[in-house]
């Protein structure tokens, strides 16, 4: 009986290594290799040329900052849009609700290229191209569906009774939202936010067309190297990109934990002690 969980965690550990760590190994090797030729298993010698280029370039860090900034605003806007939309679609008998859902989910199915080509001219006329605002607006299309879906599922599992109960205890709309609805939605919001951040971070085409070279995110720097055939620099950028993405996810997770800790402060220990 006692051996069992240990064995399980060992398997989990091995799976983690195989599926998460192993794919990074060639990237790491390729980013520091010098003359790595088939059929050698390991590079002949090492070079930090790629990393020097990536890390010394001031644009890299600027791009990291802008990428995260955009992802953050996009996610914040998504939350503000998804909450009322999901609330309305789940709670009220909206006529033609399938149409609203179809519109919101369409960007997942329609290739972003098509929609972006369409909005590019409009954004040009509105002066939104080459601006962070324009890129943020453009990023909302492919990210909002995921946020919306996550929040909608959370709303579906929140019976209206909870809010009714809070009302009967004298809670007005705002306290109701913060004391009852938000805590319930939070895990869903976090899941949606994680996807939103990751998808925003990974946008190349949309950023490129709307940002028109003036909004330089990490993928904008990375892509020419992938297609231009410099695996060293492409690998180094990819690793940096992965590190940023992981850092963003870990950061959000920590923020959620902190939120729960603030709300459940001293009892957490007592709770952890129970089976």
């Amino acid at each position: 009986m006692k051996k069992h969980p240990q064995l399980l965690s060992l398997f989990a550990f091995i799976a983690l290594i195989i599926f998460v760590v192993v794919p990074f190994v060639p990237l790491i090797l390729s980013s520091v290799s010098f003359s790595w030729r088939w059929p050698d298993v390991l590079p002949e010698s090492w070079s930090f040329r790629a990393w020097e280029y990536v890390l010394n370039d001031g644009r890299t860090w600027q791009a990291v900052g802008i990428s995260l900034w955009i992802a953050l605003i996009v996610t914040a806007v998504n939350i503000l849009l998804a909450l009322p939309a999901a609330n309305a679609l789940v709670r009220y008998p909206v006529r033609g609700r399938w149409l609203f859902e179809a519109i919101i989910f369409a960007p997942i199915i329609i290739p972003p290229f098509i929609s972006v080509m369409g909005i590019h001219l409009t954004f040009l006329r509105l002066g939104l191209t080459e601006t962070v605002l324009g890129v943020v607006l453009a990023h909302i299309a492919p990210t909002l569906p995921y946020m919306f879906r996550a929040v909608m599922i959370s709303y579906q599992t929140l019976s209206a009774d909870w809010e009714d109960q809070a009302r009967m205890l004298g809670a007005r709309a705002l306290p109701r939202f913060f004391h009852v609805v938000l805590p319930h939605l939070l895990p869903g919001i976090l899941a949606g936010a994680s996807l939103s951040v990751l998808i925003s971070l990974s946008q190349y085409l949309i950023t490129f067309i709307i940002g028109a070279g003036q909004v330089v995110t990490l993928p904008i720097l990375l892509f020419p190297f992938v297609s231009g055939g410099d695996p060293g620099i492409a690998s180094a950028y990819s690793l940096l990109y992965a590190a940023i993405a992981i850092a963003a996810l870990v950061g959000m997770d920590a923020a959620l934990k902190r939120y729960y800790q603030l709300n459940k402060a001293p009892q957490d220990l007592a709770k952890g002690g129970k089976p």
């Binding site: 009774d161 909870w162 109960q165 004391h179 459940k264």
Partner: peptide, 17 residues
């Protein structure tokens, strides 16, 4: 919320957090 009534439902509906 302003009637100063209280209500107990079939489920206890205690705020879990």
């Amino acid at each position: 919320e302003s009637r100063r009534f209280a209500m107990v439902f079939q489920q206890s509906l205690l705020f879990p957090h």
